[in-house]
């Protein structure tokens, strides 16, 4: 056993270190993987302008919904689709009326190698690649949109044996950026160069909106965050001009 005279100051020091965290309101936010970059930037601006802070967890929407259904700690959900927030509203875990569409996702066919993907996606029918990466269509809206595009081009059957699935869109990006998959479908926000507004590295085809059902990304306030002023403040901030500018900068369309 440690003597009290050693232990007690240690506990006091620990409490002092913890204290500042309880002065400013902090909210815990579950963020769809595709929104990682813009949300990191938005959270920094949010802290500067409101004094509140946001702790961000990135992952797939399905996982966050499962976690919330089993007592997860999140106060705000920024999903990759509309169904995640809807599900939590039905479960009585989200605050009715707080849901809104914060961004419309854009799908890109991308390769880490320059010159691989042409600006009309002809490579998909021409072939010459061994792996085509996409996010699991059962779990990720960007994966479902990718399957829709392949079906529309009539290439789903032909390309099926080449498909490798990432668990979420971030993992899909990993497969392509390490060149293990020559090309694949990712979110524009992952590959955009925010200064030029074009695809930053490698080569890509920004798929026309008409080729897939819009990826309507929904935000919702969760019941866990009702008491926390920072949670509502963050959702309000998401609708503010500075936040919308950041969302747009990363290639998303805005909901009208």
């Amino acid at each position: 056993m440690l003597p009290n005279r050693f232990f007690r100051p240690l506990i006091v020091a620990w409490l002092i270190l913890l204290a500042p965290a309880s002065w400013a309101a902090t909210t815990l936010v579950a963020v769809a993987a595709n929104f990682t970059k813009p949300m990191t930037e938005i959270a920094a601006e949010f802290e500067k302008s409101t004094g509140h802070s946001a702790k961000l967890s990135f992952g797939s929407t399905g996982k966050f919904v499962s976690q919330m259904e089993n007592g997860g700690p999140f106060e705000v959900l920024l999903a990759a689709d509309e169904t995640g927030p809807q599900k939590l509203l039905q479960d009585g875990l989200a605050v009715p009326g707080s849901e809104f569409i914060y961004a419309l996702g854009k799908l890109v066919l991308w390769s880490a190698t320059p010159g691989t993907v042409d600006d009309q996606g002809k490579i998909l029918s021409v072939g010459g690649f061994k792996h085509l990466a996409l996010a699991d269509p059962k779990l990720a809206p960007y994966g479902a949109a990718a399957v829709e595009v392949l079906k529309k081009m009539g290439l789903k059957e032909k390309l099926q044996p080449l498909i490798v699935q990432g668990e979420n869109i971030a993992q899909t990006y990993q497969f392509i950026s390490t060149a293990n998959a020559e090309l694949g479908f990712v979110a524009l926000s992952q590959v955009i160069d925010i200064n030029s507004g074009k695809i930053g590295s490698g080569s890509g085809w920004i798929i026309p909106n008409s080729d897939y059902t819009p990826i309507r990304q929904g935000a919702v306030l969760l019941k866990k965050g009702v008491e926390n002023p920072a949670a509502q403040a963050l959702l309000d901030y998401l609708k503010s001009a500075p936040a919308l500018a950041i969302i747009k900068k990363y290639g998303y369309d805005l909901s009208k």
Binding site: S60, K63, S66, H131, L139, V164, Q165, G166, E167
Partner: peptide, 21 residues
């Protein structure tokens, strides 16, 4: 890469079931 009959093992399948609710 979660490919049926090639790399989709049981632990990944369980994880996907849970994620898909």
């Amino acid at each position: 890469g979660n490919i049926p009959d090639k790399t989709r093992v049981v632990s990944v399948q369980i994880y996907n079931h849970v994620e898909a609710m």
